[in-house]
Design a protein around this nucleic acid. Structure first.
Lengths: 156, 156
DNA sequence: CTAATGTTTATGGTATATCATGGGAATTTA
DNA sequence: TAAATTCCCATGATATACCATAAACATTAG
């Protein structure tokens, strides 16, 4: 099978008192192709944590590396914000990472985390917040595209 | 694959009476791949110190050499400022550097320093100043891109 | 089709290594 | 020689690596 790099599915895992969580094994096997660590940061738009392989942030850095941007103050504020916020998380031999207080607080996560695949990246949610968000997204989609219906029987 | 390095995260360290500060260990392990010292200079645009591996300045120099704006007065002036200001700082066996009075004064740092990752380089701030700057950046980002989706690989 | 078995994954607890930081000795500079 | 700088060691706090158990899953045998 060819290696694809898409984070998919929704997985619920426990967060222990030290902030340890198992990264879903599917995610792990994706990341392992590249490295043994992921990068996480607070979402700017939602109360959740976003994660991705470090490679995704490489491009941002490269874009700014050239001399023209080097002195620019306007050198993308957004990018600067992300690097200041993002942090590497290595997962140990059992596949766990330890999330920081800052991240957990932003996502309002205490003892349970929901991993949601988003393609090239993924998100980590508090269960209740994710339930609401998912409902909101579904409603939004149906509102915009009333003709879009799932085939009968395709509901889980 | 070419191994690249990204400075990330925000860490707060103390500056002792001798002016010693621990370089965050994450930063150290990045720099160590290349050398045992970093280069620091006063930011041209903010009251903070900027730091990076010497490698980055070398790249800057060669970019300038090959630039279409080879005769640009502005670029010339700017590079003069940077290279005239920059200085190497070796870190000792415990991972600390001693910043100069000139740098500390420019950043208004006395007993606490905030290291902020910026991708290929990093900045060192006075805590209060950084708090203000971060707030400014966040406001700016939200103003410019109200419907922002993070660029982590996806234009959503 | 069911039962048994082996394998991967999730989770809890604990030992260990690493890091930030302070104090002081040794070395250099003025 | 006084002052400043660099180096070395000690310590507490924190984070990481390691080990053990339990649960979920897949595979195979009967």
């Amino acid at each position: 099978m060819s290696k694809t790099f898409l984070f998919m599915d929704t997985v619920v895992n426990k967060v222990d008192s030290k902030g340890r969580v198992s990264l879903p094994s599917d995610y792990r096997s994706i990341v392992k192709e590249l490295s043994t660590e992921i990068v996480c940061y607070r979402s700017l738009t939602s109360p959740c944590i976003e994660g991705c392989p470090e490679e995704l942030l490489e491009k941002l850095a490269s874009d700014m590396e050239n001399s023209l941007d080097f002195f620019s103050q306007e050198q993308d504020d957004l990018t600067n914000l992300i690097f200041g916020d993002a942090k590497r998380f290595a997962f140990d031999s059992t596949g766990r990472i330890v999330l920081t207080e800052k991240l957990l607080k932003h996502a309002e996560i205490t003892d349970t985390a929901v991993f949601v695949g988003k393609g090239r990246k993924f998100q980590i949610w508090n269960p209740e917040n994710w339930a609401k968000e998912e409902a909101r997204i579904r409603a939004e989609v149906l509102k915009k595209r009333p003709s879009l219906k799932l085939p009968a029987g395709a509901q889980a």
